[in-house]
Design a protein around this nucleic acid. Structure first.
Lengths: 347, 347
DNA sequence: AATTTTTATGGTAGCGCTACCATAACGCCA
DNA sequence: TGGCGTTATGGTAGCGCTACCATAAAAATT
């Protein structure tokens, strides 16, 4: 007769977390855990009645899959990294929101990284996010370090570039031509009869520089390009800075009769400053912006601007990412979402 | 003599991911994996030279811990859930950024959930985020379902409430008194000699209603409260709506000589609309806002408002969360970050 | 009817890490 | 000197899930 019962009690389960696991669901449905896993993921041949039984069991027990376990076992998680330059710029907030609104209902968690317009910082972020085994990457623009590019390529996770377009092959991108949009605005001003059109920009990130390029292209082909009319400032863009750039522009020679600001923050500051100085907009001076931010239609006068499809870009890119992940055919590598010239009273 | 060698080749490693693991680091340092784990986490007794050896080995091999494996093994991940009502409101963007800036360098990933001001949605989000085994929760305000409250409590993860303060015990919160701030602005207007001060609000979320309460309190104690001067609108707040609310306010009887908008979006729309109608601000009509958003100082005239410490709230709460997680003593349960009355020309 | 191919299911063994327990080595005090 | 706590390290066994392989049954082919 044994002196002692075995040290393990009947219900051992050393570190029970109380969580409903896939094994519980499988038991309830009378199948093996693997079959349950396949039934719930739907990526393998499972008979319809088994799948239904598993789904019912999962529902009944309130089963919620564990993302950590899933990521560990499959070497690919349910998170998608979204790298943006900053979030104090509403353009990127709109982007984040639209991406989130598509990915979250599909079961993916957007991990937001902020690069502060610094390629080195972006590279560090990519390195650290790779440890999370993300399913994919959504990155802003094409300007990054060679190492970052290689990290992304080697990760095996799909990567979509946002906000700009390229005609490079084998690259996924969703955006619009910043240069074309900027040229279109410049042409609008030329068509309205303005002759000395200044271009005022801050931040000087890649997209801002592309806009400058579009402005130059349009001005040159109208034979009106004059480098003296470019006001480029590396500081961070803000409404207050718009007023300062307006003051600087008005001191230039020749004195501009129109100012095209590279974004609406600056342009809003510009119209407010003009008003403060009793400058007649648009008769003495036209003012144009870029992005059509909230409030631009309420300015005095309402602001002529370029409406950029940032929400549509986010949505489209997120849906493309989902297609890539369930590896459906994704034929369109580069999607140009266009832009829209919004003419209001400021020009 | 065995006819066949065993089926497993020397280097089996069925599903090698190529990743540098803790075991690799341990081997390099000549210790066991557990000791390596302890050395890198620093939460257990390890001799200094062993710890140093492990750190060097980790550095040399470029070891990056796997968050998924860590979460799975420890039933507590390195992510912190941050639930905000929306991100198209700059107040919450500032909050997100400041939280992120503290948590990310400390090795925590902020998971951002958007509740759309809907407690039911928030409850769903909490349920789904619990599957991620977050280390903690940062939530906005106190208004939530009973089930959500229980889920948070049962999770065992610390929870800090943002933006408001309470004197309930055993609850962590970092914020300020919305009602007091609102009352202070109302008193400022009364002191300036305005008598028929309207309160114009949109969205009508809990914090907006607290501001309304603060307004009422101040108006009542000055014996000037008149329900006819409250303009409450459930639509989403925007600059354009501010103009509409101004128009509505001016039709009320008695006709207000000041309008206190519950936030700066509306107030900015208000001053712009007043300007458009050639109303003299502040002589015919004073306008005040709340939050001190970007651009309010550039309005015509610059806007009197309440500067809310949202960045400081995010920072403080995030640091408090880090303290709670390394379970240092966190004596201050409710932190009032205060507010600041910014008087400009609009009042 | 015998064979191959396809389809549905299960068994096993990890993914990389840490909780728990055990153990050895080192004091400390009586 | 022996018992007892304390400190540093290691062994083992999972956390919950899925990749890989095997196998049985069904269908298609010869």
């Amino acid at each position: 007769m044994p002196k002692k019962s075995p040290p393990l009690s009947v219900e051992k389960r050393r570190r029970s977390t109380g969580r409903v696991t896939l094994a519980d669901v499988a038991l309830e449905a009378g199948v093996s855990p693997i079959t349950a896993s396949r039934s719930l993921r739907g990526d393998a041949p499972v008979s319809d009645d088994v799948r239904a039984r598993v789904v019912v069991a999962a529902e009944k027990l309130g089963y919620v899959p564990d993302p950590a376990a899933r990521a560990l076992a499959s070497a690919r998680g349910a998170s998608i990294v979204l790298l943006v330059p900053m979030i104090t710029n509403m353009v990127f907030v709109d982007l984040i929101e639209s991406v989130h609104d598509v990915l979250f209902p599909a079961g993916y968690q957007a991990l937001i990284g902020i690069t502060h317009y610094d390629p080195a910082q972006e590279e560090k972020l990519i390195r650290s996010y790779l440890a999370h085994r993300p399913a994919g990457f959504l990155v802003t623009g094409f300007d990054r370090t060679e190492a970052a590019r290689r990290l992304l390529a080697d990760s095996g996770a799909p990567c979509i570039h946002l906000m700009e377009v390229t005609n490079a092959t084998g690259i996924y991108s969703v955006g619009f031509s910043q240069a074309d949009a900027s040229a279109a605005m410049t042409e609008h001003l030329l068509l309205r009869g303005y002759k000395r059109i200044a271009f005022a920009a801050a931040q000087l990130d890649p997209r801002t520089l592309q806009r400058a390029e579009g402005y130059r292209r349009a001005m040159r082909s109208a034979k009106r390009y004059d480098p003296a009319l470019e006001i480029l400032n590396a500081d961070q863009s803000s409404i207050a800075l718009g007023g300062e750039l307006l003051a600087q522009a008005l001191k230039r020679k020749p004195k501009p009769d129109a100012i095209f600001f590279c974004n609406d923050d600056l342009a809003q500051g510009g119209v407010l400053a003009a008003r403060r100085r009793n400058i007649d907009v648009p008769n003495t001076l036209a003012i144009a912006g870029f992005n059509d931010l909230n409030g631009s239609d309420q300015m005095l006068p309402p602001l002529t601007t370029i409406r950029t499809p940032r929400a549509a870009i986010g949505r489209t890119a997120a849906m493309m990412m989902l297609d890539l992940l369930r590896d459906a055919d994704v034929p369109t590598l580069n999607v140009d979402m266009g832009y829209e010239l919004i003419v209001r009273e400021s020009t």
